[in-house]
Design a protein around this nucleic acid. Structure first.
Lengths: 248, 248
DNA sequence: TATAGATAGTGGTAATGACCACATTACATC
DNA sequence: GATGTAATGTGGTCATTACCACTATCTATA
């Protein structure tokens, strides 16, 4: 049961085809490491040209759904986590993937003059420039999982209210829908630290417990640094997962 | 001084062009976030068709060197670390990037019948199948940094000797040059643990010190699991770095 | 002066056609 | 039976052509 391409649709044909194929992959139409139709067959089947077919397949390859072997065919990747950068960087999404209900408790919310460490990370030169600081305790099923401390370098005259954030749930959704800004790249580090008295109290653990510190700088589509965020995870309750794909 | 495309070369034209552009990017021909030539200009300049131009640019975009903005142009990404999966997964390369001289001390080397945990990770069903285990202490400037424990699922009748490994330095180089196997994807986790007596002794730290545990499953170009490796890093001497790029 | 519209330049999408390189299979030959 | 070769099907590369969509700028108009 394959849907068809709608030429009048504003969505590009290669994108429509990619969606159809992705759906079939997720439905288990093909088994893992099995071949899908050849490019010539898809050409016939959907009445599209080969460049368009290849463009759709290219997209699914960069998304990790398919891979090609020259002379043999196009294959379905084994069903692993397929996460984009947005999901990777969203605590809520992360929690839900682990089967936990995400929650939060605000510690700070408002415009501040950023300290040196933050101006460096966000490439801020104007000493009067302010950033939006959001510090929260993050929970999964009401158990404290981590302390998230975020510094947002928003465009002139634009800001986010606490109400918006509580309503929409995600900073990134607001950035995208309200300002047309979306994350394109991120630099990220992970290291071990020990809980200070204050951190220990916030996370309900003994001082000196090992923590996983995750720091991230987020860049928008025009490569401006838009956010510096650190998340301190309880070492006993959190495991960081990622998937790497060869770029060449 | 732009080199030219050699049509008789076995290397594809788009690949030659990508190399030329990458070189210019690294030479600093354009400033960060500046535009390169338009696609039509490149067409003229190198006497190539636009699809070929776009293919070259697409490659450099997935490699993180360039980005496009519709209606404005093609831009040079700020000079950050541009790492492929191979470099990301090689301890030696990693150390050199940090300005440390990598070293190692072998603890185990040889074919073993893998324990349950390993057969699960490597999708091994044959109970007679053996894997190559390599356990090493890894050092940077002769200071112990981590304990690396690797299990390789090699093709039938093929193996790697300790001498080869010491000579070539990297398992991945041997896999690629000797067997034509190269890493295409990896699943990776990071978590905090505390050093056992044995681990503490190997790393010259007190028992109970916090460690960063990195586990990785490597997949080859045909999506077979080829290696499971765990690296225990000294929490006080190691910080994990990565760069994420949006896939869509 | 402010605004709306036209224009030019950029990347985005798409069809058509051709040929090359790699992997597998079938078949002829030794 | 073993071996080599041809045929077939797959993805890989490339040129040509056309038109669409977004951005910035210029220009005529209110």
């Amino acid at each position: 049961m394959s849907r068809a391409i709608d030429p009048s649709n504003i969505i590009p044909k290669y994108y429509q085809l990619a969606n159809i194929l992705r759906e079939q992959i997720e439905n288990g139409t093909w088994k893992a490491n099995g071949t899908i139709q050849s490019e010539r067959q898809l050409e016939q089947q959907y009445n599209l040209s080969r460049p368009t077919i290849r463009q759709a397949i290219d997209l699914l390859i960069t998304q990790g759904y398919l891979y090609r072997i020259h002379g043999k065919g196009t294959f379905v990747s084994p069903p692993k986590l397929q996460k984009g950068i947005l999901e990777l960087t969203s605590f809520s999404e992360d929690m839900r993937n682990r089967g936990l209900e995400p929650g939060q408790e605000f510690l700070e919310f408002g415009l501040i003059t950023p300290p040196k460490k933050i101006t460096t990370r966000l490439d801020i030169t104007d000493p009067l420039q302010k950033v939006l600081r959001i510090k929260r305790i993050r929970t999964g099923n009401d158990v404290p999982i981590g302390i998230q401390d975020s510094y947002l370098n928003l465009p002139e005259k634009k800001t986010i209210t606490k109400e918006e954030l509580e309503e929409r749930g995600s900073i990134y959704v607001i950035l995208q829908e309200k300002f047309g800004i979306y994350p394109a790249e991120a630099d990220e580090t992970l290291e071990v630290t020990l809980a200070s008295e204050e951190e220990a109290a916030l996370l309900s653990i003994p001082a000196g417990s090992p923590l996983l510190l995750n720091e991230r700088i987020l860049y928008s589509q025009d490569r401006k640094a838009i956010e510096f965020v650190s998340i301190l995870y309880r070492g006993d309750r959190y495991k960081y997962y990622m998937r790497l794909t060869k770029k060449v």
